[in-house]
Amino acid sequence: MPKGVTGLSAGPTRPVLRSRDAGGRGWAVLAPYVYLVPAAVVLAAFVYWPLIETVNLSFYEWNLVSPSKRFVGFANYRELLTSQAFWTSVVNTILAILAMSLATIAAPLAVAVAALRVQGVVRLIYRAVIFSPTVVSMAIASLIWLWIYNPIQGLIAHLVRLVGGQGFAWLTDPQLAIWAIILVTAWKTFGYNFVIFVAGLLSIPRELMDAARIDGAGEWHTFRHVTWPLLTPTTLFVVLTTLMLAPQYLFIPTQILTQGGPNQASNNLGYIIWEQGFEVFRVGNASAIAVAIFVGFLAFSVMHFRLLERGVHYEA
């Protein structure tokens, strides 16, 4: 082959290859961002933009339809500091989170461990009975409990009267109302966490527990040193989802059973935003509450995740 031909053929090929290399590298750098665009647009439109707009609205007094908003600076935040309804909601939400931690994390774990010891058809029946409230909608669950709670002729009042007592005004007693809502929420969510724990327990290799027992470990030590460490990723998932979702779960039973009453006694952070924003149309006040909750939960989540991550054991 003549030199010139080789030179000619080799000459222009190199720059083309370089150009393709550069383009390929450029695309390789850009591609992840391009693929992220659809999700980013949706997130920006439905999460970040409302978030920014909520912060903005928290500095105004506005009823959602008036053409003019009145700028009030930090007045909505100052009002929160002295608002009895807001602080009652904060306390009730913390109570709900603590109670839900026991009722829908510790209790389902204990029941899951116990249920796995039962064999045969009984085990299936247990699981079905415990899981069934999960498939009922929260609205229907609330209506069922409305009947159970009825202080005049509800199921609980009937049973209490059988033993000579008086029915409790669950929904209109300021001491009981929030617990009535927590109970409905826990009843509804218990089964879901139970099934997650059962799945987590079943995924633990049987031979590890057998080995522990051969080494002389009793039931408690086997659970403490084998089952529990291997169950911690499942527990982390259950804890985080429960604690993050608990305030949201309270909304429907609150709306159906008490509307935050009596005299704000059962109000909570999920409900009070809706009440302020869409019942009395104090959009600025509702936004200030939402911003306060966002900041509070952000700090709580970071702290919580860091603390919990330390105790989590993932299988190698």
């Binding site: 409305l146 202080p151 209109t172 007693d173 009596p262």
Partner: peptide, 14 residues
Amino acid sequence: PMAKNDEAFPSFQA
């Protein structure tokens, strides 16, 4: 009774 309409009305009917 200190009750809600949804509780008291069925109780009246019963």
